[in-house]
Design a protein around this nucleic acid. Structure first.
Lengths: 182, 182
DNA sequence: CAAAAATGAGACATATATGTCTCATGATGA
DNA sequence: TCATCATGAGACATATATGTCTCATTTTTG
């Protein structure tokens, strides 16, 4: 069964634009194995495609977090599970972080809301003793986001499995990387 | 004293392209407060400008690290000082990381060499006990790079001073962010 | 099988970024 | 002061990405 054109185009969009943000729609169509006209039939233009990519990325992230964090015993554990769940989607995360979302207020709102929810979870985790209350929440949120990206890159480069990378990222957040010898 | 046009154009390039990778040369010229023709007088075209930006970024990073790490007592301390020194230049770092450097082999080589040197410093630091030898060097290098970026963003967003951000990034690397309660 | 929908290929027109050139102006330096 | 140089503004030509359309073919659906 062949994938739907839309699916192929969206996937190619993430692939091509993450490699080269100035790539043309022809590049995307080619990568998707689809005629250029077909791309235009589904997405009116570059802006439309970008908006669609942003919405898909947002949705996938939301779904992954939602699925990972329901029925969790603590906020700290919820954060850890979110991190694990998001690692395979870090390219989506970075797409959202790098792309100017001004033209897609719907996504912009969802994105900031997601950051806010992470911040709330971090605050709650502080009360559980999961994080040092003296450390600014803004820093913890940022560290989670960037270490997720770090985990994704080492997986991409073949330097670790997703599980290993997730463990390393969480360890870094929790207890750092200090060695035993002194 | 007015800045030289070249300086203004380079600075505008970092600013504009980091906000929007698909920005036009006209956008850059406008941001630089310079005529579009002047931009073309200094840089033949988009590729030339990108290459120039990459080389400037590379040079600035090299210089900053060089200045920060000469006469340091240990590799671990050298890494810490490098991190501190690079934070104000994290936008340069990200420019290099995000831009396809295939067309600028000179910079590509310097970039990979810089990563190699960081890896070597991490290995050496492991022997000093600065980092856990059981943790993959690739992860530590990646964590350093992304936490540097994290530090830069919180500074940019006004959530911390450069000194605070540097301290947070280093603490995260060394001992994590765990709170007291268990 | 037959109708309907989706697609690929390509022609075509358009918009826009890019690159070149000229000329008048202002700055710089001898 | 005078000469040189860099610049801004704008005209202009070109290249390229974009967007639309048609038509034959394939795929899907009923």
């Amino acid at each position: 069964m062949m994938k739907k054109s839309e699916t192929k185009i969206i996937e190619a969009g993430f692939s091509v634009f993450s490699a080269n943000p100035t790539a043309t729609l022809a590049d995307v169509a080619k990568e998707a194995g689809v005629g250029r006209a077909t791309l235009h039939r589904h997405y009116a233009g570059r802006e439309d495609l970008m908006a669609a990519l942003a919405m898909v990325a947002m949705q996938e992230l939301d779904d992954a977090i939602e699925a990972a964090t329901k029925d969790t015993p603590s906020y700290t554990e919820a954060l850890r599970l979110s991190l694990v769940a998001i690692i395979p989607l870090a390219d989506r995360q970075m797409f959202l972080a790098n792309e100017p979302l001004d033209h897609v207020p719907e996504v912009l709102e969802a994105y900031t809301q997601q950051l806010d929810e992470t911040a709330e979870a971090v605050e709650a985790s502080k009360e559980e003793g999961g994080f040092d209350a003296a450390v600014p929440t803004a820093w913890i949120v940022q560290a989670i986001e960037t270490l997720t990206y770090a985990a994704w890159t080492v997986v991409r480069d073949g330097d670790a499995t997703p599980e290993e990378a997730a463990a390393l990222a969480w360890r870094t957040l929790q207890s750092g990387l200090t060695g035993g010898a002194k």
